[in-house]
Amino acid sequence: MELTHFNEQGRARMVDISDKEVTSREATAHTTVSMDSSTLTRIKEGKIGKGDVLAVAQVAGIMAAKKTSEWIPMCHPLPLTGINIVFSDNGLDELYIEGTVKTKGKTGVEMEALTAVSATALTVYDMCKALQKDMVIGPTQLLAKSGGKNGDYQRPTTP
């Protein structure tokens, strides 16, 4: 596949999407925050001094998805039509974060989904770092995307 983020001088550019068709596009990304079981228990029980970790982190992920083009230099600003962040865990020491982003546009929302789960995880870390500084974030990965000329993608194995 040809890389399109370079101009005729080999310098970075934002890809011209002027002639692309508007289609429905969706992407889902996932990340994990590994922590002590006592930290996860306190998050789930709402016993973190800074407040409701999952509620704050969820809002942070949504806000980050909307601002992705301000974080990632070559991303196009997109009119997002839906953002959903959901949490689950392994009941022991891992918090799972999944984010799905939707738009009707000329380019995909993979970066918005990845940014959403990353910001969500970073917010969990920020709110819990007084309890535990050695939490680990990742892996962060695209699970699926649909829409656009390159077609659909589904990660072969799920986390």
Rank of each mutant, 00 (worst) to 15 (best):
L54A: 05
Q9S: 12
K129E: 06
K44E: 12
I48S: 00
M63N: 11
G82Y: 04
C75W: 11
L40K: 07
V15L: 14
T115F: 05
R155H: 14
M135I: 15
V22N: 01
Y153R: 05
N84Y: 09
L40P: 01
I72M: 12
M74I: 14
E94S: 09
T120F: 11
T68G: 04
A27Q: 02
G46A: 09
A27C: 07
A55D: 14
P73A: 11
T157I: 11
T100H: 07
N7D: 09
I137C: 06
S18R: 13
S18V: 01
S118A: 14
I43L: 04
K20T: 03
V124A: 07
F87M: 14
A119Q: 12
D36I: 01
A27P: 04
A144P: 04
K106P: 06
L3P: 00
K133M: 14
P159F: 12
V136H: 13
G91A: 05
T81D: 06
K20R: 12
V124H: 03
I43V: 10
I83N: 02
V86Q: 11
D19A: 15
W71L: 09
G10T: 08
C128I: 03
V124T: 04
A27T: 02
Y125D: 06
W71D: 10
D19F: 00
V124N: 03
N150G: 06
D36T: 12
I17C: 13
Q132P: 05
G147T: 03
M35V: 06
S88I: 02
T120D: 06
C75G: 10
K129G: 08
T103D: 03
R42L: 15
Y125E: 09
L3T: 02
S118G: 10
H76K: 15
T32N: 01
V59R: 04
G46Q: 07
A119L: 13
P73M: 13
P79C: 11
L92P: 00
E110D: 07
S18K: 11
T107R: 13
I17P: 03
Q132L: 10
D36H: 15
P77W: 11
I97L: 15
C75Y: 08
R155K: 13
K133W: 12
A65V: 07
K20S: 05
A119N: 14
V86D: 14
M127F: 03
A55L: 11
P77C: 13
S24D: 12
Q9D: 14
D126Y: 07
P73I: 07
A119R: 00
L80A: 02
R25V: 00
A55H: 09
S38M: 05
T81G: 06
S118M: 11
T4N: 12
G147F: 01
S37T: 05
G91N: 08
G105N: 08
G151K: 04
D19T: 12
W71M: 14
E21M: 01
K102M: 11
R25W: 00
M74S: 08
I48E: 00
K44G: 00
D134M: 13
M14R: 15
A119G: 03
Q58M: 09
S38T: 08
N90P: 01
T123S: 15
V59L: 15
P139T: 10
A57D: 07
V59E: 07
P77V: 09
P156M: 02
V53E: 04
I137E: 01
E21C: 00
T4L: 13
Q132W: 08
G148L: 01
